[in-house]
Nucleic acid binder design. Structure first.
Lengths: 226, 226
DNA sequence: GAATTACTATGACAATTGTCATGTAAAAAA
DNA sequence: TTTTTTACATGACAATTGTCATAGTAATTC
């Protein structure tokens, strides 16, 4: 009955600090949703009034910029929480959250989170640390965007995808991003992204199998990304 | 005697949530430092074991990248706290903090902050919100870096400096950044930054008086930055 | 006050990256 | 299947941006 107890999110996220009683409370107030690939969990400007736990699948946090391009700020995977920042800031979402692969998410109302925050120091510290982690990553991404070439950022991002999401049985990257999405992650034009992938392919750093990408030379990619 | 009580940082930062007793505790454990322009408060990789309150002056958080350029991640002014992120993450500083103008800062040991965090829900919520604010700004900067041209970012940054730090009696920007530092904020080469400033000058969007910069046409700059 | 150093400025050129056009391949819909 | 749409790919060219060289100007040091 109490499904939250064994949920992966409970083991990986800030929620690991909750005690039995709190988990029961959580299980009673949460609501589960299934999100198909391409669909949105919430859109920029929406007031969510809670957070979403990612039970399964992959999502992207992105923002549509003035020139019509969708800039991807972060990918989220199972075990992570979504919408923490805007909930805490009492603001509408700054970013849209969409599914990159079919997702299962649970919604936890704000009142619950605030309650846990006020009564469980370990939970509030965990939550804080997870936001601090996001901040560090964001700052580091900023530096990479400002100082590195598109080629370096592409190499870096391919390694990141390989590292964090792993590979399928055929050795190709498990997360399937379109070239446009990949371009949106590294902050470049889709055509530039495609061109560089072709270059990497010719240099045998990667292999392009249809739309799939196989990482072939991690060392060389690492060197390129420096 | 109890200097923290009327300190600007106490009014502006997360510390505003502290009660009288806690402020006394703070006043007894803090240590004040004077940092001259150009000097460092802490360097990347250092373990600070506490946070710094900025009482007066302007500082920059930056990181030296592989190509030798110093990327400025954030400017800090009086009323802000420095080093919160790495303290909470239990990590050495990810960024260096240096004075852009002479500074007065107070050091607060980690033990005090953790104590406040665990015993004062309003303080922990404030601290969290301030980090959330940083995260939002960082994400938005990331999008600007990825999607906007150097010209747009320069316009944006000039407006930001004008907005946040104001102008001197002669109408020039109060914060005095070198062209190199300005370039480091917008993520470009110093020469490109200088060239664009000259362009803006010719277009009468700004006026260059020696090393000083006077913002002349806010509307036009805003339009440019879009 | 002369000399040294750091900062600002600009030209010339090259490299990177973006845009537009066009074609192909794959996937989805009819 | 055929059609339509969407995603991938590449050429050609232009615009942006970075690099190197050089020089002037302001600030600092001796």
């Amino acid at each position: 009955m109490n499904k939250c107890d064994q949920c992966i999110v409970r083991q990986l996220s800030s929620l690991k600090a909750l005690n039995k009683e709190e988990v029961v409370k959580l299980a009673n107030s949460k609501k589960t949703y299934t999100i198909k690939k391409g669909e949105a969990i919430f859109e920029e400007g929406e007031i969510t009034n809670g957070v979403f736990c990612v039970k399964d699948g992959v999502g992207k946090l992105s923002k549509l910029s003035a020139n019509g391009k969708d800039q991807i700020v972060k990918l989220v995977k199972s075990g992570e929480l979504l919408g923490q920042r805007s909930m805490i800031s009492n603001e509408p979402a700054n970013l849209s959250a969409k599914a990159v692969a079919d997702m299962e998410v649970c919604f936890i109302p704000k009142s619950e989170i605030i309650d846990f925050f006020n009564n469980n120091n370990q939970f509030s510290m965990n939550l804080m640390q997870s936001i601090c982690e996001d901040l560090k990553e964001s700052d580091n991404d900023k530096i990479a965007l400002a100082q590195k070439t598109v080629k370096q950022r592409l190499a870096e991002t391919l390694l990141y995808l390989h590292d964090v999401f792993g590979e399928d049985a055929d050795k190709s990257l498990r997360v399937h991003l379109t070239r446009e999405e990949l371009a949106g992650m590294i902050g470049t034009a889709t055509e530039s992204c495609i061109r560089l992938l072709s270059d990497f392919n010719k240099l045998e750093l990667i292999e392009l199998v249809g739309k799939k990408i196989v990482i072939k030379d991690i060392k060389a990619l690492k060197k390129l990304a420096e």
